[in-house]
């Protein structure tokens, strides 16, 4: 306890850096808005809703991914798992026509999620039973899901007319956009799963040392399959929300979000070697990226700067992660 106070202070600072960073950029954009326009940036419902919706899009891909990364793996296929489920949902709704009502939409949601889960099962099977490294395996299914989504969609965007679907994507309940509520519920469930259940402990242990869980009698293969199915599941929900928001299913719905989702997980404190990361961290990471995206657009800079900014934040996240490792190395 009486160890070097400076070191432990630095350690807690590094652990909380993503919170500090979030406050810093919010402060920056607020200051900028006040000076440039004399208006507030942050304290407007529109800003908050826009940031929250952008963050929820990223989160739906990043939440399942967090679990996979904590277990020491990666899932690149989510980019097109999202697109695949978006397209499948749109096709089901189109098949029954605009008069189908809620029954059709609920069926479409179910079939869309099922399509995503199939991708997850394939990923899990490849990694757990065929021992394919997850980076390569999910890069393969990234391509397959992309191709299949484009084929079933006939190479185009599948537009639909459905008020019910639109309500899912654009509805607002008590001031909260539906996509935000959905992401929040998934985030709470996954946070519980990772921090309070045996499944979560085994996921952390798996990321640190596979032998530890194996010798403890845990069925590691089954565990891996469940992880990849969960990852595909949240990415699939992201696809369903996309189809609802834009009244169209597109194969590339998730492609631009993949980088952001991976970034959110690492900004949130995860490590490439596994064994680290939290759902709360990933939520902060997603919000940071959404603030950067929206703030840059708001401040009138060319939107392409968001790629540069997010890239820089990823590098900072990795540097912070490494200095944290070095610190714990020194203290032991």
């Amino acid at each position: 306890m009486l160890e070097n106070n400076g070191t432990s202070f630095l350690k807690s600072l590094l652990n909380a850096w993503s919170w500090l960073f979030l406050i810093l950029i919010l402060g920056f954009f607020e200051l900028y808005a006040q000076m440039e326009t004399g208006n507030t940036f942050l304290f407007r419902v529109y800003t908050l809703q826009s940031i929250a919706v952008a963050a929820s899009q990223i989160l739906l891909l990043a939440l399942g991914l967090t679990l996979v990364i904590v277990a020491g793996h990666i899932d690149l296929s989510i980019a097109f798992t999202t697109g695949f489920s978006a397209v499948v949902m749109a096709l089901v709704i189109r098949f029954f026509g605009p008069e189908g009502g809620w029954l059709t939409v609920i069926l479409a949601l179910g079939v869309g999620l099922l399509a995503a889960i199939v991708v997850g099962l394939i990923n899990g099977w490849l990694v757990a039973f065929i021992n394919v490294p997850s980076f390569i395996g999910t890069l393969g299914t990234y391509g397959i899901a992309r191709g299949v989504a484009l084929i079933v969609a006939g190479g185009a965007t599948v537009s639909i007319r459905s008020d019910e679907a639109r309500a899912i994507g654009n509805g607002i309940i008590l001031g909260f956009p539906v996509p935000v509520l959905v992401a929040a519920v998934v985030a709470i469930v996954f946070s519980y799963l990772l921090t309070h259940t045996k499944f979560g402990v085994h996921t952390y242990a798996l990321g640190a040392n596979r032998a530890s869980v194996e010798r403890a009698g845990v069925d590691v293969k089954k565990h891996l399959v469940i992880l990849f199915v969960l990852s595909a599941f949240t990415a699939g929900i992201g696809g369903l929300i996309y189809t609802g928001r834009f009244s169209a299913g597109a194969a590339n719905a998730g492609e631009p979000i993949l980088l952001y989702a991976v970034a959110a997980v690492f900004i949130g404190g995860a490590s490439l070697t596994g064994g680290q990361g939290t759902v709360v961290g990933t939520v902060i990471g997603a919000i940071i990226i959404a603030v950067i995206q929206f703030g840059l657009v708001f401040s009138g800079l060319p939107p392409y700067w968001q790629f540069v900014a997010v890239g820089l934040v990823i590098i900072v996240a990795v540097i912070v992660d490494q200095s944290r490792d070095r610190l714990t190395g020194v203290s032991s």
Partner: peptide
Amino acid sequence: ALADNLDPGLNLYLGREKTRRFLGLPFL
């Protein structure tokens, strides 16, 4: 075969963790 990122308690119980129910849900 330790999980280096977990505390001694979780390592001791790894695979046979103790849980307590709260609102019907198991918590470690």
